[in-house]
Design a protein around this nucleic acid. Sequence first.
DNA 1: AGCAGGTGTTTTACTCGTAAATCATAAGCA
DNA 2: TGCTTATGATTTACGAGTAAAACACCTGCT
Lengths: 185, 185
Amino acid sequence: MTAGNGRPATGGATPDATTGDTVAGVVRQWRAVHPDLDTAPMEIIGRVNRCAALLQQAEDAPLRRAGLSRPEFDLLGALRRTGHELTPSELARETFSSGAAVTKRLKTLTERGLVERRGDPRDRRVAHVRLTDSGRALVDGVLPEQLAYETSVLSVLAPEGQGELAGLLAELLGRLEGRLGGLRA
Amino acid sequence: MTAGNGRPATGGATPDATTGDTVAGVVRQWRAVHPDLDTAPMEIIGRVNRCAALLQQAEDAPLRRAGLSRPEFDLLGALRRTGHELTPSELARETFSSGAAVTKRLKTLTERGLVERRGDPRDRRVAHVRLTDSGRALVDGVLPEQLAYETSVLSVLAPEGQGELAGLLAELLGRLEGRLGGLRA
DNA sequence: AGCAGGTGTTTTACTCGTAAATCATAAGCA
DNA sequence: TGCTTATGATTTACGAGTAAAACACCTGCT
């Protein structure tokens, strides 16, 4: 899904006020071409992907102002919210990224003085990473702006709608993680 | 999204039945550290991102069996569902990707004999791209498998839940596209 | 002790996407 | 016509992520 990632499951189209969102238009096109197929999944998966892409693009703004990419912020955030040092492998698990990616990010974050590494005296293979004071200050400074921005973006939905959406997504995600996550474990 | 690419986890990245999804755990950690902040947006944005990541990973399987990446499938799908030729710029718009990316994908898809290019006699800058017979056959062969797979993945939600979720996402997406999409246009 | 195999981290080689520059052509206008 | 500006597409240079190999170190067995 990468939002990389994060492209519509079936492609996109131009938004049209009379049609609703772009995904609705795409689904209509598919149905016209393949009336026999059940296109219902596109209505969820296509929208999840497209929402993820749009939200990320929007969201990135406050972070960039702070000179951080989202993956970098995720890494710093993991250290901040857990409140203790983490090893590179733990960071990889926490941020759902590969060890190699973590290594690279740690390199630049260390150079920028946002995190520090400490060797483990017991096991010299492992490193312990922690936030520096300025790294912590950066996270604490950016987070409120980030949340405020997210709140304003989501305010296009009424509060009850937001609650319902969060609930449904939690249910979906919880079961996907149990099912798909379990496959890998 | 503060919860990251939807990548957070509670302390291990393993979902916990008593906790719900991984995002719930992350939000709890943030609240413990910053009790003053309104973390509600994470519950939606974090989950959207994480769902997108998990669904894409899952989804990729049927496509890869056909030797296609998702962006490639999106491009072929745009040609199939519109039913007519598209220029590279139209393809870029339809698939929400850059022109340069489309150029590269067209190159490999052309080499594989899945699409063909035709010059425009009126305006020699533009190219018209269409599916070859085998390109069309590939899309038509993969799409049903893809949809069946998506249906089975989403079946972790009850049908009414799926409908509600699709509706809420449509509302959110429609307004985001109107708001954020408008900024770029 | 010494070695086999395992684990944490980093490095290497590569893919893929993007932004910006470039190329080719069109369209408007003096 | 000949110039200027705009547009479609491609190329270039580069950044970021990944998988797999390499490296460093630990652990258990004999």
